[in-house]
């Protein structure tokens, strides 16, 4: 495995078009369909497992419900789940890639983070609304922090 090679660029130069009054709807639709794809992948996989087990002998009743994964299996599932979730929300990464250069880039090694636009220099997404300015973001963060403080105070009472 080579860790130094350039990551594949997966973000579209020129951005993607949006059709609904709020681009968030298009993005959510993308997520829903991606989720549909993953659900389908599971169904195909399960069908394969069932077919194999049919060939080799059947499952005992309740065996799946009672099953516990080993720590190694758990760790592998956790890594797969992380990838699953990242893929589900990949469409949001486009705005990050399209943001001006001061936007935070992933600090993970190249091979582990194939979504950056570093290779060809991804451009701004043509029809997406402008990203909030630093001042707006700071103001929002402040509001969120205040709300959190209030919530904590409330719970303490």
């Amino acid at each position: 495995m080579t860790h130094t090679r350039k990551p594949l660029r997966r973000t579209i130069r020129g951005g993607r078009p949006f059709f609904f009054a709020d681009p968030a709807i298009d993005k959510i639709l993308n997520m829903v369909v991606t989720l549909g794809s993953e659900v389908w992948a599971l169904r195909e996989r399960l069908a394969a497992v069932e077919a194999i087990q049919e060939r080799q002998g059947s499952l005992a009743a309740g065996e799946v419900d009672a099953f516990e994964f080993s720590p190694a299996q758990e760790a592998r599932l956790a890594a797969d789940r992380k990838e699953f979730i990242e893929n589900l929300f990949r469409v949001l990464q486009e705005q990050v890639d399209a943001a001006p250069s001061r936007a935070v880039r992933s600090s993970a090694p190249a091979a582990a983070a194939p979504k950056g636009g570093a290779v060809f220099g991804a451009r701004g997404s043509r029809r997406s609304p402008p990203a909030p300015s630093r001042a707006q973001a700071a103001a929002k963060a402040k509001t969120v922090a205040k709300a959190k403080t209030r919530a904590v105070a409330k719970r303490k009472r």
């Binding site: 090679r5 594949l8 993607r16 078009p17 609904f20 298009d26 993308n30 369909v33 991606t34």
Partner: peptide, 28 residues
């Protein structure tokens, strides 16, 4: 039209996205 178009863009994007993981493994 909006759903047709938004789903078509999504599907178009997913065509290439569905290849990337295998491509990343196989390209060397």
């Amino acid at each position: 039209f909006r759903f047709y178009s938004s789903l078509r863009v999504t599907a178009q994007d997913m065509v290439w996205q569905s290849v990337f993981p295998a491509l990343d493994r196989g390209r060397d």
